[in-house]
Design a protein around this nucleic acid. Structure first.
Lengths: 365, 365
DNA sequence: CTGAAAGCGCTTACAG
DNA sequence: CTGAAAGCGCTTACAG
């Protein structure tokens, strides 16, 4: 390939100095229109694109966003697409860091930051404690957590309205006549599942039903045991809300093995809406997370933090988490450090809940 | 955050020049062991990590691998994980370019290269013609295509043994007693599906059965029409190999609507092995692609092209495409430009093919 | 083995 | 409005 042109070559060809070429490239105001036009023509003729590495070094702005990914679930692709779309024309690029495997994610982050390559971080960390990120964020590092399960953090994050989703699901089951509805935790300690449980309890209370602690179930690895417990109950549930789809599908499989009919013997609703192609037999009614929008929103938040002139494609702030709303009005200039977005979710009704096949869509916003 | 340390600070603290610090950082031989040790201690004490942007500018090696992604399927996550794992400790980073959407991927590539940020490209482009990449590759750009559907290219790529996979699938159906086996193309023009069709034909011929052109079916958007054609045949097939899983699941859904029983009325085998969680009712027997290995292999190929000292984790060359083997022996020094890897696939037997539930695993290597 | 100097390709005060 | 110069943080001949 031919030697790469530099700003000096363009300067020669246009009969100006490097400074002027640089000014044209950076849309500086202080350039004579005639000169500008001449330089631009040369740039176009030569297909000149300035070296990004040098640009980044010279102006200290690296225009690189780090994206920290955990072991990837299938829906991460949608989130990534959302991020990529938002970053597409921003002048920033995404650099991918995998925090999967045995490596300590803290050391990964530290090296990433020390190397001074990226100017901000999009982090999706689920199983680890994000304390390290919180510390860095407090010290001024632009970072946005994506779809974190640890939603209590005082660090910018984008997630969904977990409680709203299960409230929707629970109401739907109530409207179908169910009175005994159980909730199955995929694991006991993640805050997002507690929020989902809270939404379920809220909907029950709104219907005048006190949540029965016996109906809060935990998956300790043996779904079968869990189902046997249900069978052994004197007043067993007729419907079950499962904390996420992955577990919900496992439940469906086990129930089938046990000979239960869905939804006649047990109505099921999940959370996430993974695995869209299979809507035929295992038609799981579920709360759909807007993964693409989650990625898009997180990326646009980060871009806004990095560059105040950045204009988001949508007014995401209308989805600020309730607890944020007050303090934002008070300290408007510091809106970013405490910004938490909970995007609304939708209930996608298929057949596992027993609502028949009539299409029906509700959402939390 | 405190001001970032530079090589000059370390030099001061260690009482040496910047040059010496740089030599220590780059493991240069020409450093007195005592000096080296002193410098290293200061570096460790200060947690110093050199600025990557400056490094990249100074030595012209950007240590950044571009990864061009199409609209992401679910299995792209596995490929990405494979790539990330391989790149993890190589000193390179991955920068993500999305070629999805309406944007012309050629212009994306050109800007990427002109900007001089990345030193090599991993490309996964399916629906577009990769002619532009071929041209660039010929001119010396290190590029590896991932899992491309256009397997006839004279450009380095990593894919799977498509023909071997369908041969495995076809043999399996033959062993179950099927004589009339159809093949369904997801679309008529992609080379990978022709390879899969070829494998199917091979297996039939090996069994002394001439492939019946009537049994080569095409999905033109209406699976139902296709199924009606099958029903209308005087000698209809009893088994069906579908070109990919996505279509296979659609077929299963349509067949169910039509009241067909799987596998009694029609045995089905797919290709890809997407959607692992659902093995209960829609248990699709399918040819599994080793997505993680595909990503890993492609990344390691690219790293080898960028840095001759790189040592791959496995001897991938044993999976060189047959047509390559001869010329590699002849022109060993140019092994890279013509390197095509076809990883073996495995047949994952579930219930849709009618083999019952006994676990069974076969592969093409 | 080590340091001073020039250079990577850009940006940005500063002076004119 | 424009150019010469210094600088971003590193590397690498070159001279000693």
């Amino acid at each position: 390939m031919a030697r790469k042109l530099t700003i000096r070559d363009i300067a020669h060809l246009a009969g100006v100095s490097k400074s002027t070429v640089s000014r044209v490239l950076n849309d500086s105001i202080n350039v004579d229109p005639i000169t500008r036009e001449r330089v631009q023509r040369v740039i176009a003729e030569q297909d000149f694109v300035p070296d990004q590495t040098a640009m980044r070094l010279a102006n200290g702005d690296h225009r690189l966003i780090g994206m920290l990914l955990p072991t990837l679930w299938s829906f991460m692709t949608e989130i990534i697409q959302g991020v990529a779309g938002a970053v597409q024309d921003s002048g920033y690029e995404i650099i991918l860091y995998s925090s999967s495997g045995l490596k300590d994610y803290c050391s990964v982050i530290d090296r990433v930051l020390a190397a001074n390559l990226t100017s901000g971080l999009l982090a999706s960390i689920h199983t680890h404690s994000p304390q390290h990120l919180v510390t860095l964020s407090r010290r001024g590092l632009p970072v946005v957590m994506i779809n974190t399960t640890a939603v209590r953090l005082d660090i910018p994050w984008v997630s969904v309205d977990n409680a709203g989703g299960t409230r929707l699901a629970t109401r739907h089951l109530l409207s179908l006549g169910h009175k005994r509805i159980a909730f199955l935790f995929p694991c006991p300690d993640l805050p997002c599942f507690h929020d989902r449980y809270d939404g379920y309890c809220q909907a029950l209370r709104e219907a005048g039903i006190g949540p029965d602690p016996m109906l809060a179930l935990y998956d300790d690895g043996s779904i079968v045991k869990c189902l046997h417990e249900i069978q052994a109950m004197t007043d067993p549930p007729t419907a079950l809300i499962v904390g996420n789809d992955y577990l919900a599908y496992s439940v469906l499989i086990e129930l089938e093995k046990l000979g239960w009919r869905i939804p006649e013997d047990m109505a099921i609703i999940g959370f996430d809406d993974i695995v869209p192609p299979l809507q035929g037999r295992f038609a799981l009614t579920t709360v759909r997370q807007p993964f693409h929008e989650i990625g898009q929103c997180a990326a646009e938040m980060l871009l806004s933090m990095l560059d105040p002139r950045f204009v988001p494609s949508r007014n995401w702030w209308e989805f600020s988490a309730p607890q944020d709303t007050d303090q934002r009005t008070r300290a408007n200039e510091h809106v970013w450090p405490s910004c938490h977005i909970q995007l609304p979710v939708t209930l996608t009704v298929r057949s596992s809940c027993g609502a028949g096949l009539q299409p029906l869509c509700q959402n939390t916003s």
